[in-house]
Design a protein around this nucleic acid. Structure first.
Lengths: 211, 211
DNA sequence: AAAAACCTGTGACTTTTGGCACAAGCAGGC
DNA sequence: GCCTGCTTGTGCCAAAAGTCACAGGTTTTT
């Protein structure tokens, strides 16, 4: 492992308060770093998961696909891991989601068969595992009930607020539609209505949220 | 703990291959059994979870509510635990779901502060914890995408098949509608259509699935 | 057995969402 | 500039789901 990669690993170790020297040694020995370009796939549906993927830098979109429709499950951001990969560590299983880099990203890879025992051997890894499950699970329940209860308009507004950077969202209507599992026209119309209510301003691939 | 309660606990211990004597002792000391009547609440929304609830016998429906609408999250059946209670063991948190007994039920209760450490101390409890999270998580993702992709008709058919006992479902249309997060009339009409296609036969609070 | 409560069926209407078609606008390359 | 491809706006219609109203069942209670 070259120096810069060691630094990347140390960021992760520090972030999750990993303090067992043995675990750190194992991480050094077995983990590897990969670099994704925007648009690269991290995980594809129906492939077997062999490496636990942890996003060190960048943003990865995890979604499910069904014919021509798709729906966002969650985003992975700095220091987050894909819960489904983690789950796979405890019993090999196929991925039923896709994960694609939304920005250039740095990924820490750990062979799943290594991870398996760690969560009982090392307290800090145990915490990491449990926290990951807890967090993902509650987030998923939240999204599940949003999907069940909220009309599209609410979900769209929510999405815009959550994914804005300085009150700006840089996405086309088509991309928004994909995230929400609907169609471009519906999104365009809803956005237009919301603009008329003076809550947003629309531009080319740009939505400005008015506060 | 009286004898019959001890037997109940032993069923649980056996079912999950718990073999550490120390853990068994702890379970004996701190757990308790409660008996629910059909319709009793196990967990209410916005209450704090203090006991891990494990269903030994019976069937418990876990759902979320939103104004007058509700949606099924999962059922707990024999030897299953409520993942959200389990999650609460690792960091106290409010319940955001309701759980109600669908049949008379026997429940094993364990104080959450006790459970907290077990999953790192005892291998069998660790497995129980991880398996519970894994199972619930994948089930939830499955339901999430069903909700996103499948039209109501498909979800209804699915529900009937999954919840039938010898090809019979004993529920009113109103109850079905609640489970699926829709309204009674919509369910009635869909069922009528499906009956005309000779896939089911409708009766009073009875739907017979034709194979 | 009469009343009350619940269950089912259905017509008519509205709202929400989706699909098609096409026009106009913007952005980058040549 | 001018082409090409992507983006946005919108009219029109269709399908899915939700709402209201009401009629007639069945079951339960008294």
């Amino acid at each position: 492992m070259i120096l810069s990669e060691r630094d990347i690993l140390y960021d992760f170790i520090k972030f999750h308060n990993i303090n067992e020297q043995l675990l750190i040694d194992e991480l050094m020995e077995y983990s590897s770093i990969s670099y994704l370009k925007k648009g690269d796939y991290l995980i594809k549906e129906n492939s077997y998961i062999k490496l636990l993927k942890i996003v060190i830098k960048g943003r990865v979109r995890v979604y499910q696909e069904n014919e021509d429709k798709e729906i966002l499950i969650y985003y992975l951001e700095t220091m987050e891991t894909c819960t489904l990969s983690l789950s796979a560590c405890f019993g090999n299983c196929k991925s039923n989601v896709n994960a694609v880099a939304e920005t250039d990203a740095t990924i820490l890879n750990i062979p799943v068969h290594k991870v398996n025992g760690w969560s009982f051997e090392y307290k800090s890894w145990h915490n990491f595992t449990i926290d990951t499950f807890r967090h993902s699970y509650s987030e998923l329940i939240f999204n599940y009930s949003k999907l069940a209860f909220d009309p599209l308009r609410e979900r769209l507004l929510d999405y815009l607020i959550k994914n804005s950077d300085q009150n700006i969202v840089q996405l086309s209507h088509a991309q928004l539609a994909r995230e929400l599992g609907t169609t471009r026209e519906v999104v365009s119309r809803l956005l237009k209505k919301i603009e008329l209510e003076k809550k947003i301003v629309l531009g080319q691939k740009t939505i400005k949220i008015l506060t």
